[in-house]
Design a protein around this nucleic acid. Structure first.
Length: 435
RNA sequence: GGUCCUGUGGUGUAGCGGCCUAACAUGUCUCCCUGUCACGGAGAAGACCGCCGGUUCGAAUCCGGUCAGGACCGCCA
């Protein structure tokens, strides 16, 4: 008997089939017992009406999470979950488990606290709700890739072991590289720009590493960056339009192919407006000052509280979960940032807030060799460590720009989990290196 | 790095100087139950209240230290 997946059960009504997976729960009602089996895709119910069919489980003393194989006849039944269930079954216990799991997985919601979940992530993530959250992460990557391929972008992979800290200042993890010091890449920024010189339009899905000792619900030290970079742009608005289309594509992919996971989490996807509302950094500060009385106008950046306020403002003013903040001050942006030709103290850059959290950073980059030399000098940085990067511009680069979406932040904001650590399988934070 | 908060059976919580010989829910075990879907009902086992020290006639409860965790800020995706 070939195994089918639990999700394919409705297509086999009337047939004899075999399911394999984990015993999720066993509800004994006396003369009738309901068994729920979970495989990698979903769950299915089997009905046991004789003590004989139950015998293999009781004989093996099999608790939930035991691996079992269930063979039986698929019957349509309105009272069954998903409308069908297995009857007249034979159970084979493949791997009996007689110790209760550290976290009960058979309940609708997980009762364990964050630390317990993370300590037992390999088990806790089996829970259907955790699994749905993590699968949405896969769906986001799928939608991201599909949207960009559709727009003639080429997927690239750039080195994660690098010789120098790319963007001055931020902390990097050092490692021993055959006796030399190397670093884990904190961003594919330089490489994706170099690759614009090769493919014009590139994107990358890959890990980045931040050695910053931050300890908040929206920071982890290793995360997945969804990076995009493209040539021949007008200015940062060209990039923002691509970002809008990509977000739309991601949501469309989730709606189309991840409906089951959305249903498990009872989630409604945010609408991506045709035109995402946008506010200039300076206007945003003035607005906050006028509306809240908090004068943040001399600050070079928006504080998390400001971002939360702006997110709520965008929601009530435009009915949008998304808000672009453009034109961050040059002094807060990395040296390769392109200034606003009309107001050189401000940059042609943007952040995208999603429900009040910074989700994306992007903008236009410098593209002339001379501008880079001047920018490095202005930033007080030596030219020598940047020599390979600068060679790109020395031999001709078009105007270009791009952005980076924080994958886990998108998952967090989309699903509403209380911490970014719950938006990834095995988070790395200040204290956690295992599992 | 700064500020604040929390550690109680496997899990999640209540109790916050004597009613604590530590309560409730869930999980585990035994029994009853033929349509459950967080099944229901009856019973049982399971915790020296994170650890060390102090205050007190008396500490899960107050204080100090220590270890572990969490929230916010700085910084960022």
């Amino acid at each position: 008997m070939t195994r089918i997946f639990t999700t394919d059960l409705p297509a086999h009504v009337g047939e004899q089939v075999s399911l394999a997976g984990w015993l999720q729960s066993l509800r004994r009602m006396g003369g009738i017992t309901f068994l729920v089996l979970r495989d990698g895709w979903g769950t299915a119910q089997a009905v046991i009406e004789t003590e004989d069919s139950l015998q293999p489980l009781t004989a093996a003393n099999a608790l939930p999470e035991s691996l079992i194989r269930v063979t039986g006849t698929v019957q349509a039944n309105a009272a069954a979950p998903n409308g069908c269930e297995l009857h007249h079954i034979a159970i084979e216990v493949c791997v009996p488990i007689s110790e209760a799991a550290p976290i009960p997985l058979g309940k609708r919601t997980i009762t364990a606290g964050q630390n317990t979940i993370l300590d037992h992530a390999m088990i806790a993530n089996r829970h259907v709700s955790r699994r749905a959250t993590l699968r949405l992460s896969a769906g986001i990557m799928e939608g991201f890739r599909a949207s960009l391929r559709e727009r003639d972008f080429t997927e690239v992979q750039t080195p994660k072991i690098v010789a120098a800290a790319t963007e001055g200042g931020a902390n990097v993890f050092a490692l021993d590289y055959f006796g030399r010091t190397a670093y884990l890449a904190q961003s594919p920024q330089f490489y994706k720009q170099m690759m614009v010189g090769i493919f014009e339009r590139v994107f990358e899905v890959g890990p980045v590493f931040r050695a910053e000792p931050h300890d908040t619900t929206r920071h982890i030290n290793e995360y997945v960056s969804l990076d995009v970079e493209m040539g021949f742009i007008e200015d940062h608005h060209t990039v923002m339009a691509v970002l809008r289309a990509v977000l739309h594509g991601i949501m469309a992919t989730l709606q189309r192919s991840y409906a089951a996971d959305l249903a498990v989490l009872e989630l409604a996807l945010p609408a991506v407006p045709t035109e995402i509302p946008s506010i200039h950094f300076a206007e945003a500060q003035t607005l906050i000052w006028r509306e809240t009385g908090q004068d943040v106008r001399s600050e070079p950046d928006l504080a998390p509280a400001d971002e939360r306020w702006l997110g709520a403002w965008a929601q009530r003013t435009f009915g949008s979960d998304f808000l672009f903040v453009t034109g961050y001050p040059m002094r807060k942006r990395p040296f390769y940032t392109h200034p606003d030709p009309a107001r050189p103290a401000f940059s042609n850059s943007f952040d995208l807030l999603f429900r009040g959290v910074e989700l994306v950073t992007g903008g236009q980059r410098l593209h002339r060799y001379g501008d880079y030399l001047a920018a490095l000098e202005h930033a007080g940085l030596a030219i020598e460590p940047f020599a390979p990067y600068l060679e790109t511009f020395r031999y001709g680069m078009p105007s270009h720009g791009g952005f980076a979406i924080g994958l886990e932040r998108l998952v967090m904001q989309l699903t509403g989990v209380s911490s970014i650590k719950l938006a990834t399988t095995f988070p790395r934070d200040l204290h956690r290196l295992t599992p």
